[in-house]
């Protein structure tokens, strides 16, 4: 494991990066360190957020300095991680991979060196976990797919992806929540809404949640898109 890097992130933040490559280990360290910084109550810290392999510590330059925050972070890094005791949950989410809903499945499968059928099987068999939430509200980054799914983002950005689209790059999947362009490839469609602004709990996922995808036909998906609620036919199970 590399030494964590401590880097500037704007005039009011530092970024602690645990690795330059995504791994389950680096992700677990980032999630645990985020909790540790949040619990430490460091003077002047305004916000702590984690991504896949890093943690951003935001601070108020009026109340503290970059040097003081860096020093606090260094001492927290030298402590042992607490055990992850958070309750885990499993989402089972229907997804359609047919021609109406998966325009780039064949292309992505080819880049991963497998047939479309094998690609679908690998995605549905994958033991996926919410490794980060971000880009857009509530949007989960799901990892990890097998190593041969380490495919690059495309050079050109795709516009106008439907919400609930399943997209892939660099060994991960995202359930798309944003109205924004992306370089990830569109390989499936769900009727799941990751963000529900009017609900009491606006964010469906928490980091650490487990996710299984279950393939359904395009016509089933059309029905779910038209008639189901924000869960889009998905079920939630709390694991021990």
């Amino acid at each position: 494991m590399d030494e964590p890097e401590i880097l500037p992130s704007g005039t009011d933040g530092i970024l602690v990066r645990f690795a330059r490559r995504l791994s389950d280990d680096a992700n677990a360290q980032a999630l645990a360190f985020k909790d540790r910084v949040a619990a430490a109550g460091v003077e002047g810290v305004t916000e702590v957020a984690s991504s896949l392999v890093s943690v951003r510590v935001g601070f108020d330059p009026e109340r503290t300095t970059r040097e003081k925050i860096t020093s606090s972070v260094r001492s927290l890094l030298s402590e042992k991680s607490p055990l992850d005791t958070a309750e885990k949950r499993l989402w089972r989410i229907p997804v359609a991979f047919g021609p109406d809903h998966a325009p780039q499945l064949a292309e992505a499968a080819e880049l991963a060196g497998v047939s479309s059928d094998v690609a679908i099987r690998e995605i549905c068999d994958a033991r996926l976990r919410v490794i980060a939430i971000g880009f857009a509200p509530g949007q989960p980054y799901l990892g990890m797919l097998p190593e041969h799914w380490n495919i690059a983002r495309q050079t050109e950005l795709t516009e106008g992806l439907p919400r609930g689209a399943l997209i892939t790059a660099v060994q991960q999947l995202i359930l798309w929540a944003a109205d924004a362009p992306t370089g990830w490839r569109h390989i499936g469609q769900t009727a799941f809404e990751v963000y529900r602004p009017d609900a009491d709990a606006p964010f469906a996922f928490s980091p650490g949640d487990k996710v299984r995808f279950e393939a359904v036909s395009d016509s089933t998906m059309n029905d779910l898109l038209a008639n189901s609620g924000p869960d889009g036919g998905a079920t939630l199970e709390v694991l021990d």
């Binding site: 704007g10 971000g134 370089g183």
Partner: peptide
Amino acid sequence: GLNLVSDLIVPGDIQIAGS
């Protein structure tokens, strides 16, 4: 740059897209 691990952004960041 197309295989990087996605990471946290702050306003003001200058992102170089794939092209």
